[in-house]
Simulated scan of single mutants.
Amino acid sequence: MSADTRPARPSAIAGYEDWPAYVRQHPRYRAATAAAQELSDALGVPAVSRLQEVTVQWEETYDGVTTSQLSWQLGFGPATTGWLVRPADSAGPLPGVLALHCHGGNKFGGADRLVELPTNHPSAEAARAGHYDGHALATETARRGFAVLAHDSFAWGSRRFDLSTPPWRTASALEARRAQWREDGVVPSEADDYNASAAFHEDTVAKTAGLLGTSLAGMVAHDDLAALDILAGLPGVDADRLGCVGFSGGGGRSLALAVLSPRIRASVVTCMMTTFQSLLPAYLDAHSWLLQTPGLWKLGDWPELTARSDAGFLVQYALADELFPEDGMRQAHRVLETLHRDGKYIGAFWPGGHVFTTAMQEEAIDFLAGALHLKTPFTTAL
């Protein structure tokens, strides 16, 4: 078969063919301090282009909160979907919180796992039940008096890659998974099939990012910085009182965002803190490319990155966390106590595994309320 008659090879970055040009055309994100700039450079965070208009797709008020579905285009890849959740009939500017969804092995969905919607997709319900103790974190936080923005980040939900025709390496691994499902009598859902494909495809995304001089974490940080700009500019949001909260991969995003943007006054990092050394050799496979950016250790250990931010940090540890050894978490805690003798760090150890429990969520919201000087009376369904 001649080269001219060979079947076309599927795109390895379907839906994102304009991604390379965007990265080439946008210089590195310029941080406010030299210390933050080093993280921007290490992750390869592209500068955020000037955003087009944010569109309100719909808005509904129920159960004490008003939820608005928003969308915006970042200049490459599919448009972003996000949800703004705020107390119904709230008066005056509210402190803003960016709620950052976890990795969770679920890229079919994104921030929908954090928001109570008129109709939630089963994959969002499963993520909420498995990782958030059944709660919609963004909605519950809004009930306490915050304006909360939860958005799909790069490669998740509305920003996912088109894997309907997977590239050949992903297709080969996916076929093996499908064969196992057939042997086991399992009929996968659309989300199951996509998430299996996306798990294999993450290596391809990371390779592409590395070739472009960025990283998976850098591209996610790009989307998070854009969402933070949107949150800060929304009517009724106090741009001087902004925080972020995330569990697992979202916790890593929360740490990075607090370093990259001085707008963040308070950051909650839940089930995403240890030393890099403690991951060697047995815990590396527990984590995705979202944590393991090549060369990141050159800047210092994971807990040491917090010293590059002026934000206050609440770090929550789960003592039986399957993804982190206890000695690594405790060593990180000691490092953080040493670095933040100014009182800007609180470490909390909780029983149980890799779950953002109800009690942990209450502690996180209380921390944000104190750090961002919440004035609205608290109400919560947690």
Rank of each mutant, 00 (worst) to 15 (best):
D310I: 01
H222I: 06
W83I: 10
A147N: 05
P93E: 04
G145H: 14
E190F: 11
G233Q: 07
N120E: 11
V237Q: 03
A142W: 12
V245E: 08
G77C: 04
L43I: 09
S49E: 08
L212S: 06
S288Y: 05
D4W: 13
L84T: 05
A199T: 14
A142K: 04
L242W: 11
V268H: 09
F313E: 09
A124F: 12
G44P: 09
G64N: 06
I264P: 11
L114S: 02
A179K: 06
D301G: 00
L260Y: 07
I230S: 06
G243M: 11
P7R: 03
A32E: 13
I230T: 13
D18F: 02
Y22F: 14
D285C: 01
M273L: 06
K344R: 15
P46T: 05
A88M: 04
A79H: 00
F247L: 07
Y16A: 01
V205H: 04
R160G: 00
P262W: 00
E322Q: 15
L234V: 10
G246L: 09
A320Y: 00
D112N: 11
E38N: 09
Q180L: 15
G250F: 05
L84A: 01
A3E: 13
L291C: 00
H131T: 11
T170S: 11
V148Q: 05
